[in-house]
Design a protein around this nucleic acid. Structure first.
Lengths: 145, 145
DNA sequence: GATAGATGTATCAATCATTGTTACATCATC
DNA sequence: GATGATGTAACAATGATTGATACATCTATC
């Protein structure tokens, strides 16, 4: 199972905000057109990003901008903002292993540390990339294409 | 979204096979009782593990054992065997970004390398743990509890 | 070769998360 | 007040997962 497209859409949103901040009012309709999804999907994501302190959303007159400098927002911040799972739990554990079986009884103790390390490896990599880094890539590509 | 419980169940199965290989015939019913799911769920997983060359399943008389030594089976092997996504693609990308928007047009080029590195970090960690390692943990815990 | 016990697999239902969509209350500004 | 935007509820459609039943098929053994 995959990490939902909420994550890539959220990053797409942040790139748009930074790319167009001087030239357009970045509304949910504007973003919806770039991502090519329903504006409500964008608004829902903006709410999650706002709760996480990543963006500002202006009621009434409309528009969005970053709440923090782009080099203080990491991909992990975005991931945690939009993934709806407790503590970003990456693995779904089977719920009721048999406590009468020595393996079933201990399976959580056996695997939890291993799974945690795997999740941490992923999060460490996510934490090493900021929106500023991604913007640098973006600028290069846009000037070429 | 989370990695499905197929993964933890598959590891649970492999631990059971190794733990009980000398004392019981490890059937799908036996495994189903330890994991506490329907036997068909176990058989489906065993088929996937078999296709990946990880286990043998004996038709007719029944029973399962490892196809390879436990130190030649990594958690990544198990993950790839039971996750049903192409190449273990961890991230679900939104499908149709707007090609008329400079960001929408380039979003794949911008993010693909970053996402790949994140996935690789996870896979590297998974690849560093073998079933033999997990069995060592298991034996310690079972003798204590 | 008939039987028993097991696997292999099709099929269907239940559940859940995601995603798409409409609708409308609310807000800020002109 | 009118306008254009956000905030959010509500509901449908889709798809993946998981649970369950059923039965064909296989193998060992009597």
């Amino acid at each position: 199972m995959q990490i939902s497209s909420r994550f890539t859409i959220a990053v797409h949103i942040l790139i748009c905000i930074e790319t167009f901040k001087n030239d357009y009012k970045v509304t949910s309709d504007f973003l919806a057109s770039s991502v090519n999804v329903n504006p409500v999907v964008i608004r829902r994501l903006l709410q999650q990003l706002k709760k996480a302190g990543i963006v500002n959303v202006t009621r009434g007159s409309g528009g969005t901008d970053l709440e923090k400098p782009s080099d203080e927002i990491t991909l992990l911040d975005v991931y945690n903002a939009v993934e709806c799972v407790e503590e970003g739990e990456l693995f779904h554990f089977h719920e009721n292993p048999n406590p009468l079986c020595p393996v079933g009884k201990n399976i959580h103790s056996i695997l939890d540390i291993r799974l945690k390390k795997i999740q941490e490896a992923m999060e460490r990599e996510m934490n090493s990339v900021t929106i500023k880094d991604v913007m640098a890539d973006t600028k290069k590509l846009i000037t070429i294409c």
